[in-house]
């Protein structure tokens, strides 16, 4: 088998190197440096995507089943979101912060790779599997970026990051909603109910509520709060969204209620 977790380190380190150089170059002023930073980050993404495609092909199934595999996608989407934010709004720090978050998940996979069996269990044999999981993980990465913006915004006592966070949350909310609702339709096909308040679903509902709260807070800010009194509340909501989605993603597995979850596929 050409592509396996055994050679992950090679692709991971190459990508990390390209992303790190790109993040450093991004701090230098000038259009050439900006283009170079974008190009290096994109090259790192291409290397990383090559590994995922290779792994997908050799496993004979999409690598989306276990925590280790979702970490793979999260680090990819985290850097892709960072690249997109840098390209659109030119925050020079975003590549470094995205790199730190992505690197944490890559290092966890390098240290604890969670090498898995070959096939996908019957419960996961569905056309909804890939769109449901990838949409969720992509939204997680966007909320990861908005979380970083919230930290910086609170630290610098400025509201300048909120318009960008609005866009990230706008896109993230679409993917989060799509992930959740495609999960509902899939659950109906698999278990007979659209929503069963399974522990994972409960945390997903809490995360969705927090996202909607952010959107409503920002609407309220536009209408009745021109002085930006809700800025701290909005940044806090972004932090809460990030914490809740960590719970929804893997934190729920460490709770006593996890034993009742229908979303446990790793055992």
């Amino acid at each position: 088998m050409l592509f396996s977790w055994n050679i992950f380190w090679l692709f991971a380190l190459s990508s990390l190197l390209l992303w790190a150089v790109g993040a450093v170059v991004a701090f230098r002023r000038g259009e050439t440096c900006r283009r170079l930073a974008l190009g290096l980050t994109l090259a790192g993404l291409a290397v990383y995507v090559a590994f995922i495609i290779g792994l997908w092909t050799s496993l004979g199934r999409p690598p989306l089943r276990t925590l280790g595999e979702t970490r793979l996608w999260y680090s990819l989407f985290m850097m892709a979101s960072g690249w997109l934010v840098y390209r659109l709004w030119r925050y020079r720090w975003i590549l470094s912060f995205s790199l730190i978050v992505a690197a944490v998940f890559i290092i966890i996979n390098l240290v604890h790779p969670d090498i898995h069996d070959q096939s996908l269990m019957p419960a996961l044999q569905s056309g909804w599997f890939v769109p449901h999981v990838t949409a969720y993980i992509f939204s997680y990465s966007l909320f990861g970026c908005s979380f970083l913006m919230a930290l910086i915004g609170l630290w610098r006592h400025t509201e300048v990051y909120l318009p960008s966070a609005d866009r990230l949350v706008g896109i993230g909310l679409f993917f989060l909603t799509f992930g959740m609702l495609s999960g509902c339709i899939w659950a109906k096909q698999a278990w007979g109910d659209y929503w069963t308040w399974d522990p994972k679903e409960t945390w997903a509902a809490a995360t969705w509520c927090a996202c909607l709260l952010y959107v409503h807070l920002r609407l309220k800010a536009d209408r009745t709060d021109p002085k930006g009194q809700t800025t701290v509340a909005a940044y806090t909501a972004l932090i809460v969204i990030f914490l809740l989605l960590q719970m929804c993603w893997y934190g729920v597995n460490f709770l006593p209620s996890a034993t009742q979850s229908m979303h446990s596929y790793t055992q």
Binding site: W197, P199, T202, W203, A205, A206, C209, A210, L212, L213, H216, L217, L219, K220, R223, L244, M247, V252, L255, P256, S257, Q260
Partner: peptide, 24 residues
């Protein structure tokens, strides 16, 4: 929208509490 915010916070908190408690 203030009511919407309050309700979202309340439902969210109740979901978190329910998520932390084993359902049995």
């Amino acid at each position: 929208p203030r009511m919407a915010c309050g309700l979202l916070i309340a439902v969210g908190i109740w979901c978190v509490l329910g998520g932390l408690t084993p359902q049995m």
